[in-house]
Amino acid sequence: QAKEDFKKMMEEAKFNPRATFSEFAAKHAKDSRFKAIEKMKDREALFNEF
């Protein structure tokens, strides 16, 4: 479920497709859906799949 929420957050964010993961992470670090994925490498993997 956390992965689905994370993907939904990325869809809602409508970020620049050229944005890096660190830019995305800095902007969304306080979002509970971002925090729900415990490991940063897992967050980055989901970001890269998107």
Rank of each mutant, 00 (worst) to 15 (best):
N48G: 05
R43T: 05
T20C: 09
K7G: 04
M10R: 01
L46Y: 08
D31T: 00
E23K: 01
R43M: 02
K39F: 10
K3Y: 12
L46G: 04
P17M: 06
E12D: 07
E4F: 07
T20K: 09
R43P: 04
K30D: 15
E38Q: 12
R18P: 15
E23S: 05
R18V: 13
A19D: 15
A19F: 11
D31G: 00
K27W: 08
F15A: 13
A29S: 13
A2L: 09
F15V: 13
Q1K: 10
A29C: 13
A19S: 13
S32T: 14
E38F: 04
K41T: 15
K3P: 04
F24S: 01
Q1S: 13
E44L: 05
I37W: 00
F34P: 03
T20G: 12
K41P: 09
E23D: 12
E12R: 01
K30G: 14
D31C: 00
E23T: 05
E23W: 04
E4G: 05
Q1P: 00
F24E: 04
M40I: 13
K41H: 06
K7L: 12
S32I: 09
P17Q: 10
N16G: 14
K35G: 08
A25E: 07
K41A: 10
P17G: 10
F24V: 04
K35Y: 06
K14I: 07
P17N: 10
F34M: 03
K14E: 14
D31A: 00
A36P: 01
K39P: 08
M40G: 08
A19W: 14
M9L: 08
I37E: 02
K3I: 15
A29W: 08
E44F: 02
A2R: 13
A29D: 09
F15Q: 11
D31L: 00
P17T: 12
K8N: 07
E23Y: 01
Q1C: 15
F50T: 00
F50I: 10
A13H: 07
F6K: 03
F15D: 10
A2F: 07
A26Y: 08
N16W: 02
K8V: 06
D5E: 08
K7C: 08
R43Q: 03
D42E: 09
E4Y: 03
K7N: 11
K14Y: 09
K41R: 11
E44Q: 08
F47I: 01
N16T: 12
I37C: 02
K30R: 10
S22N: 14
P17F: 09
F24A: 01
L46E: 02
A19Q: 15
E38A: 14
F6D: 00
K14D: 15
K14M: 09
K7W: 08
S32H: 12
N16D: 15
A36Y: 01
A36D: 04
I37A: 04
D31H: 00
T20M: 07
R18H: 10
F50Y: 13
A45H: 07
A36F: 00
M40V: 05
D42L: 02
M9Q: 04
K30E: 14
K7Y: 12
L46M: 12
D31E: 05
S32F: 06
K7Q: 08
D42S: 06
K8G: 07
A45I: 09
Q1M: 15
E11C: 07
L46D: 03
F50P: 00
K14T: 13
K8F: 02
F6P: 02
K39C: 13
N48V: 04
R43D: 01
M40R: 10
S22R: 11
K14N: 12
K7I: 15
K7P: 01
F34R: 00
L46S: 04
A25Q: 09
A29T: 08
K35H: 12
F21D: 04
K41E: 15
F50D: 14
F6Q: 02
E23H: 03
R18N: 15
N48Y: 07
E4H: 04
D42C: 04
K3E: 12
D5K: 03
M9I: 05
K30W: 09
M10T: 04
A36N: 07
A45V: 11
E49R: 05
A13E: 14
A45M: 14
A26K: 11
L46F: 10
E4K: 08
K14W: 08
K27T: 12
A2T: 09
E11W: 05
K39G: 11
F6E: 01
M9F: 03
S32V: 11
K39H: 11
N48S: 08
A26Q: 11
R18L: 13
E12K: 02
E23P: 01
F34L: 02
M10G: 04
K3N: 04
E38K: 14
A45W: 08
K39Q: 08
R18Y: 13
E11Q: 10
E12Q: 05
R43A: 12
S22F: 06
E23G: 03
A2K: 15
F21H: 03
A36H: 04
R43C: 02
K41D: 15
D42W: 00
K7A: 04
E38Y: 03
T20I: 08
A45S: 13
K7S: 06
D31P: 00
N48P: 00
E12T: 09
F21A: 03
D5A: 08
E49C: 05
F15I: 15
A13Y: 13
F47Y: 08
